[in-house]
Amino acid sequence: MFKLESHWVLRGDVAILSDNNQLKLIAEDGIKNIKSHNSAIAKLLYLLSTTGVVLEIEKEPEGSLLRKLKEANLIHTAPPCGMTPLQSVQWSWNEAVAPNQEMSQQLYNSSIVIVGCGGTGSLVAQSLAGSGVGSFVLIDFDKVSMSNLNRQFVFGAQDIGQYKADILAQRLMENQKVVKTKSIILEITSSRQLARLATGANLIICCADEPKGAIQDYVANAALKAGTSALFGAVGINNGTLGPLLREKPSFQAYLRWIREVHSVCKKIIIPARFPSNGITNSIVANLMAWEALQYLAKIGPSKIDACILSLDFRSFELTKKQVFK
């Protein structure tokens, strides 16, 4: 879809400072000094911050300013022609995060299955759709109720009584201009059932928490059967859990052994715990999950939750490693 432009522009987080006849480029990762300030350099930097300039790297002389800026990842290709304003914003952010790594194209081509479209699932979907992920399969059997509206912000009072997956799919198409959404009104009761629905997906994200232990088992086994990866997370009252992100068979097997132990304990519970949810804490966990999913899909950076679970204390914001599956 995305045909690269020949124009290059200054990265969005770069500010330019003139200090004692020296130009300094200030970015989040530090300060880059440039040779003495002159009108030619000032004009070039102005063009880079507005319309962009044509850069043919093989024709640029060694040591040229444009070459140095590219090598320092301070400039990136301009958004391709024909993009909507939404896609242009996505492109510029993606290029600032991972210059020249075709991140926008990878996200656009990605397909995600989200199991559970409530407090975390709806927010994960919105954040990933807003980042440019192109295709979603949304699975949930629940309907919107008044008690959801303190945290499930994609829904409104007018949606009460309608299926969450249907409304979420509609919103992603309308607001984030997602290429493809499919809502499935279904309670997952087996891994085989879910594996069929996840065929061709790049990632299954489990945002459901019931039945405890069983749904995690179904998702992990379905990912194995479908030949894809799986990401998990959950929200309590004072703590949230992130992960694991499962990619390799040994990690899946270790996780499944652990989750079956959890499930066996859950079967002995007479009165289950009920965790009231809050939009603030749900949003924190959902967006950390979305960030991990985005990095995985775009192939940028190592995951902090690769084959492990992290516990997040909301009050101290401390992350501690809770379980490892290797």
Score class of each variant (00 low, 15 high):
12 G>A: 07
189 T>H: 08
324 V>L: 14
251 S>I: 02
105 Q>N: 10
259 I>F: 06
298 A>K: 05
293 A>Y: 01
149 L>S: 04
316 S>I: 06
178 V>Y: 02
312 L>P: 02
288 L>Y: 11
46 Y>E: 05
20 N>T: 01
5 E>C: 06
249 K>P: 00
149 L>E: 01
198 A>T: 07
287 N>F: 04
144 V>T: 05
139 I>V: 14
293 A>S: 15
163 Y>R: 10
326 K>N: 12
87 Q>D: 10
187 E>Y: 09
151 R>V: 00
321 K>A: 12
320 T>N: 14
196 R>I: 10
53 V>T: 10
96 A>H: 04
126 Q>S: 14
129 A>N: 06
222 A>N: 04
200 G>E: 00
216 Q>E: 13
227 G>E: 04
256 L>I: 13
206 C>Q: 07
191 S>C: 13
252 F>A: 07
205 I>Q: 08
203 L>F: 07
116 G>E: 04
231 L>S: 05
156 G>V: 07
3 K>L: 13
146 M>E: 10
139 I>F: 07
144 V>I: 15
105 Q>F: 06
199 T>C: 13
152 Q>M: 11
283 S>C: 12
76 H>T: 02
141 F>C: 11
273 A>W: 01
299 K>I: 10
220 A>H: 05
103 M>E: 06
141 F>D: 14
50 T>W: 00
